[in-house]
C-alpha cells in the first residue's frame, strides 16, 4: 500500500484524467448510426436499464443511465469490451457496439431524465451528505464532490451519482477491486477511486449511497 498525500496528488490526478479523456474523445467519435439501428439497440438496453434509463432492481441492481455523463458511458462500454471492467452480461452487450453506436447511445441516455431512485433508508442520508461534501480526512478519503460535482451530476469522465440506486452504489464500492481495473497491463481511470475504496467503511458506504439515492 503506497502512502500518498491525497490532498497534494488529487488535483494533478484529476487534471491528468480530464486532459487525456478530452483528447481521447476527439479521436473516438465514430460515424453516425441509422435511426432504425439505434432504436432497436435502445429498446434492447432499456429492457434492463428501464424505459427512462432509470435502472432496475433485477436479480442484481441495474444502474440508472438517465442523465449520465456521455464520456463516462462511452468509457465504461469500452472498459467492458476490453474486460478492464468485469461483467459477463455487459461484455456481451458492449463488444458488438461500433464507435458510432456507443456515441449515439451515450448521448441518448445523457438526455434522459428520471426521478431519483428514492428507495434507500432515508435516515442514513444526512451522514452520507457529510461524507459526500467533506470526505473522511482522517482516512484520506477525498470529498466526493470534488470530482463528482457539488450536485453529484458528474463532469466529463467522472460519473453522475445523483439519483443512482443505493443498491448499485453499495455493490460497486464494495466490490470495486473485483470488478474494475482488471487488466493490470492497461491501468485505467478506475485507479483514481482507490483512496475512497480503501478508506470508507461499510456503514459509511451505506450512508453515502443513501444520500445519493435521493438526490435529484
Amino acid at each position: 500500500m503506497i502512502a500518498v498525500n491525497v490532498k497534494s496528488v488529487l488535483p494533478a490526478a484529476v487534471l491528468a484524467v480530464v486532459v487525456s479523456a478530452a483528447a481521447w474523445a476527439e479521436d473516438n467519435a465514430g460515424p453516425p448510426v441509422s435511426g432504425q439501428e439505434l432504436q432497436a439497440k435502445l429498446q434492447y438496453c432499456k429492457t434492463c436499464h428501464g424505459v427512462s434509463g432509470q435502472g432496475y432492481s433485477g436479480a442484481s441492481p441495474i444502474p440508472r443511465l438517465a442523465g449520465q455523463q456521455t464520456e463516462y458511458i462511452e468509457n465504461q462500454l469500452l472498459a467492458f469490451t476490453d474486460k478492464r471492467r468485469e461483467n459477463i452480461y455487459m461484455f456481451n452487450v458492449a463488444h458488438v457496439l461500433s464507435p458510432g453506436m456507443r456515441t449515439a447511445l451515450a448521448k441518448h441516455f445523457h438526455d434522459l431524465n428520471a426521478p431519483p431512485s428514492a428507495s434507500a433508508s432515508k435516515e442514513l442520508a444526512p451522514a452520507g451528505k457529510k461524507i459526500f461534501e467533506e470526505g473522511v480526512p482522517e482516512k484520506e478519503v477525498p470529498a466526493c464532490a470534488s470530482c463528482h460535482g457539488a450536485d453529484a451530476k458528474g463532469n466529463g469522465p467522472f460519473p453522475r451519482l445523483a439519483g443512482q440506486s443505493a443498491g448499485y452504489i453499495v455493490r460497486t464500492l464494495t466490490n470495486w477491486d473485483k470488478i474494475r481495473g482488471k487488466d493490470p497491463a492497461n491501468p485505467d481511470n478506475s485507479a483514481i477511486m482507490q483512496p475512497v475504496i480503501h478508506g470508507l467503511t461499510p456503514p459509511q458506504i451505506a450512508e453515502v449511497a443513501a444520500y445519493l439515492d435521493y438526490l435529484d
Binding site: Q43, Y44, T47, C48, G58, A59, Y89, H95, L97
Partner: peptide, 13 residues
C-alpha cells in the same frame, strides 16, 4: 447482442 436479445439472467437471475 447482435440480435438485440437481452440476457434473461440479468432480471430472472
Amino acid at each position: 447482442a447482435g440480435a438485440n436479445i437481452p440476457s434473461c439472467a440479468v432480471c430472472h437471475g
